[in-house]
């Protein structure tokens, strides 16, 4: 729960978090090393100086640290944990559903753990979707189209094999597709940052929600165009939001474009933990106001009501979280502070 300086309580759903193991022990090769180093570079490049972590902690953090950063020091009420395997780079996967679910089971009201698929594995993937549904009752997936798989260096959402997976997801009620579209690894097989496969998939699977993480940056214009036409396309603010600290005017330009095109009901907060921690992001976001000239030029505003939607209510709707009911539950079991 975030309590604003005015005393209002804001329900926070952190739409994009990870419980990863990028430590040298888990790395398979140079790519594993370079991947976590790239994440660490993001952390360094966009965090306020007082928020910087040591590299060893960044590579692998404990359950207690995560819990503390999100719910004790941080304002999150519910965190959505994404699974990312990068099987070619990490022995036990970068962030596996088993490891995350094991941790999340201790705090059932706090976490939603999403699965992950690689359609290139064919029928095995379909079996795996059943496995995740039966064992973890997943509501969503993280789709990392840039993942390497042997000779292949990427896939697209509109590949026929991917469509088979989405058909099954639709049937099983796995509704929320978090698509990584943005920087870091570039799927070499495709046009570097192309987001158009989202357009095809979102049109062909109207029952599914397509949450485009990082808002497709650096193709925010293409993303906005797709989101205008598809009601089931959402923008996740991970990576976009940290600019609020280093380049606030530029953040204002991005968020105003998103408000104008994508709309206030289709934008979701996400800290991208542990690249960034939610506390400073939420505090700065709440305090943020659009410059007058941008308001006039675009005709949009970032009011407290809109901020509240972005910070939690929009994601709550996607994940069927009854906010009042959940608040009551969380109040009756306040955050546990681990014994130091």
């Amino acid at each position: 729960m975030y309590k604003t300086p005015e005393g209002k309580e804001i329900f926070i759903v952190d739409g994009h978090t990870h419980f990863w193991d990028g430590s040298p022990e888990n790395q398979t090769n140079l790519q594993g090393k370079q991947f976590i180093e790239c994440f660490y570079a993001y952390h360094n490049a966009l965090s306020p100086p007082e928020q910087l972590w040591e590299k060893s902690r960044f590579e692998k953090y404990t359950e207690d640290q995560l819990y503390h950063d999100l719910f004790v020091d941080g304002p999150d009420d519910v965190a959505i944990i994404q699974s990312t395997y990068l099987k070619d780079f990490y022995k036990n996967g970068f962030s596996s559903i088993e490891r995350s679910s094991h941790m999340a089971a201790k705090y059932p009201d706090r976490f939603i753990v999403n699965g992950s698929i690689d359609p290139r594995d064919g029928n095995k993937t379909l079996e795996y979707i059943h496995y995740m549904k039966e064992n973890f009752d997943i509501q969503g997936l993280k789709l990392y189209t840039a993942e390497w798989n042997g000779k292949s260096k990427g896939w697209a959402l509109n590949d026929p094999a991917a469509y088979k997976c989405f058909e099954l997801c639709d049937k099983l009620g796995i509704k929320n597709m978090h698509v990584h579209k943005g920087p870091t690894i570039i799927p070499l097989n495709k046009d570097a940052f192309d987001v158009h496969d989202v357009d095809h998939a979102a049109t062909d699977f109207q029952n599914l929600n397509w949450i485009v993480e990082h808002c497709g940056q650096p193709r925010i214009d293409d993303f906005c165009w797709i989101a205008v036409q598809e009601n089931n396309v959402y923008g996740g603010l991970a990576v976009v939001l940290p600019f609020i600290h280093s380049r606030p005017y530029y953040f204002a330009e991005m968020i105003s474009e998103l408000l104008f095109w994508v709309g206030e009901d289709n934008i979701l907060f996400g800290s991208d933990y542990a690249i960034w921690t939610p506390r400073w992001l939420v505090e700065k976001f709440w305090a943020f106001e659009l410059p007058e000239e941008i308001k006039q030029r675009t005709g949009v505003d970032l009011t407290p009501e809109i901020k509240e939607k972005i910070l939690g209510l929009n994601a709550a709707a996607l994940y069927n979280i009854d906010v009042e009911d959940r608040k009551a539950k969380l109040e009756s079991s306040p955050v546990l502070v681990a014994a130091e």
């Binding site: 180093e37 790239c38 660490y40 570079a41 993001y42 360094n44 490049a45 966009l46 920087p183 940056q217 650096p218 193709r219 925010i220 214009d221 906005c224 600019f243 280093s246 380049r247 530029y250 330009e253 991005m254 474009e257």
Partner: peptide, 22 residues
């Protein structure tokens, strides 16, 4: 033109930041 620039600036700001860290 603004939308084009917003994309390019994103990449530029990230590249500079990432290069500094690396």
């Amino acid at each position: 033109l603004r939308a084009v620039r917003i994309n390019m600036e994103f990449s530029g700001a990230l590249c500079r930041g990432l290069l500094n860290t690396r």
